Structures are given as structure tokens and as C-alpha cells.
Amino acid sequence: MARPWEVTLSGRRRAVVVTGASGGVGRATAVAFAARGDRVALLARGREGLAAAADEVQRAGGEALVVSVDMADAKAVDDAAQRVADAFGRIDVWVNNAFAGIYAPFTEITPDEFRRVTEVTYLGYVFGTRAALHHMLPRDRGTIVQVGSALAYRGIPLQSAYCGAKHAIQGFNESLRCELLREGSRVRTTMVQLPAVNTPQFDWVLNRLPGRARPVAPVYQPEVAARAIVHAAGHGRRREYWVGGSTAATLIANAVAPGFLDRYLARTAFEAQQDEDEGEQAGPGNLWTPADGPHGRDFGAHGRFDEESHAGSSQEWVSRNRARMGRALTVGAGVLAARRLTRLARR
């Protein structure tokens, strides 16, 4: 059963911040919040994507506030949070989602490139969380959602910088969660671990592979991730959500047989992360500048893998409805027990 403050948050127009909102999962998440009437602050660097995302938010029924910011700049993030609080009066939900990545063997990534991925993908979450807490702790209310990945537990080849950052987010979030629990704070932090998602990142990420970068199958549509994130924002007492059967399988297998996964990924993950298309592998790159501006285009929420992507996930539905299923199983067990007792009494 949801706590009173969670019911309140889910029953009114919340003031929501989504980072990395110009495309992909962030874009789909912003629209999902808007569909329930929330006011949504869209944080990202690219202007074309932000403008298009704002239009989608408004068409979905929400109110949009566009804030152009580099999440690796701590002061800029603080200023962005203050701008949101000034415009909306408060911050109820903060979704950390912005990231950068490189597809390349570790030895082909320069120190500056590795640092940049870490600053955006890890420190961007740290700076975003700090800015959110500045506004949530005085009110003793709010939820911070860290958008993670199966790669927060299980590193794979060719994404060392990204995997390292996601592992760091996992440890940081657990540490913060313990501190909030110790203080008895009603500010919540939760993490949503995602599977491979059909987003435009594979067409703009810095790529040094022979072929075009692609997600490891199975692939899910960004709306699947968005539903889980919106649900997590309203049920922040739960420490973590897994999205997709592949995420659950990966995390369980890694806990049971990590050495086996090392060898399996060494054999399969190089080919699984690239298409055979040659000559088109280098996208515009968004490591140092946004891929959609100033002369770029709006990439939207979906990538080029619509035909193979799953629009739903039974595992994600179960994860969101775990409490309801538990109650149903309890009632069912009670009914069966009552029937058995009745039969015994008639003997």
C-alpha cells in the first residue's frame, strides 16, 4: 500500500525535472509525465531536440519548461534547478538520465574522452542529485529517480567508460539511500535498471567500431522504460526496478556465474554491438557538442530499430504490479485454504 505522500504525489500535477530530455528515453519519459498532466522541466544541451520535446510535452497535456544545460557543469545544474523551482514553485521529482558514451576498445579511448563520459554520465547524476536535494530536503519530500542499466551490475566490452559510470551511480545511489534512511527523511531515491533500448544514441554516439553501433538484442521501445520511470517516481520507497526480461536474466546470471558471463561476452558481445554496415558507423558525435545543433536535427525518442523492438515487457509489468500480484496471490491462497478446510469439516 502506497504511503500518503506517495498518493499525493501521484494524484496531482507534479513538478518534474528530466535530464537528457531532448531524445531517447529522456524524451519518452518527459512525454509520459506530461500525459498525466505534470509540469515538466526539460534539461539537455541540444536546442533543436529540446524545442521539439517541449512541443510533444504540451501536446500530451503537460506544461514544458526548457532549460539548456551541460550536466557536467555543477554550477549550471544548480542554476537550472533554481530556475525550475522559481517557475514551478517546487521540485517534486528529479529524473537523472543524461549520459554520454563511446563505442571503442578501452585502449582506443583517450583520457580526455574517458573523463568526459565520466563527468556527464556519473558526475552529471551526482550534480543533479545534489541540486534536487537542495530543494527537496527543506520540504522533506520528493523523489529522485536514477536511470540505470543492466550495465550498472554487468560490464560489457566496448563500453568501458559508460559501464564504469553506471557502476559508480549504483554505488553512489546506495550510499545516499542509506543516509536518507538514517535521517528519517521522506525524500526518496530509487534506481531503474534498463535493458537495451531503441534510442537515437546509436546514430550519434562516438563510435570507433568497424560497423555501425547497435544495442544488444532484445531491444525495447523507449516507452517501456518511460512507464517504469514514471511508476518509480510515484513509488520511491522501493530501492530498485528491473525493466525487461533480459535485464533480470543478466543480473541474476552475473550474481551466480560472473566468470561464465566474462567468457560468453568476450565471444559474443563484439559482434552483437555493431551492424555489418560499413562506412556509416561515424555519427555526428555528441561527446563535446550536442548532436542536434546548431545545424543538426531533432532525433526524437526512437532510433532505427523499430522493427525489432518490443513495445511491452511482461517482466516490467510484473515489476510495476508486484504488490498487487502479492495481494492477489494472498487472497487466492486464502480462498484455497478456506475451501480445503470446508471439505475437511464435511468429512
Rank of each mutant, 00 (worst) to 15 (best):
P138E: 05
L123M: 14
Y125G: 02
R130S: 13
T121W: 00
G101W: 00
Y125K: 03
D92V: 06
F114M: 13
Y125T: 13
V126H: 01
A131H: 04
I91Y: 01
N96P: 03
R116H: 06
G128P: 10
W94D: 08
N96R: 08
V126E: 01
P111W: 07
R139M: 08
D140W: 08
A100R: 07
V120M: 01
Y122I: 05
L137I: 13
V93L: 09
F99A: 06
D112C: 07
H135D: 02
L133T: 03
T110H: 09
F106C: 11
T110A: 14
R90I: 04
V126K: 00
H135W: 12
E108M: 12
T110V: 12
V126P: 00
P138D: 09
R130D: 13
G128M: 10
E113V: 05
W94A: 07
T129D: 10
G101F: 00
L133H: 06
E113F: 04
A131N: 02
N96T: 08
E119H: 04
A104P: 08
A98L: 09
T121H: 00
H134C: 09
T110F: 08
H134M: 13
T129F: 09
H134R: 15
A104R: 11
E108N: 15
I102K: 09
G124R: 07
A98H: 04
M136Y: 04
A131Y: 04
V93H: 06
F127V: 07
E113H: 06
H134D: 14
L123D: 01
N96S: 12
W94H: 09
V93I: 15
F106I: 11
T129G: 14
P105S: 11
F99V: 01
M136N: 06
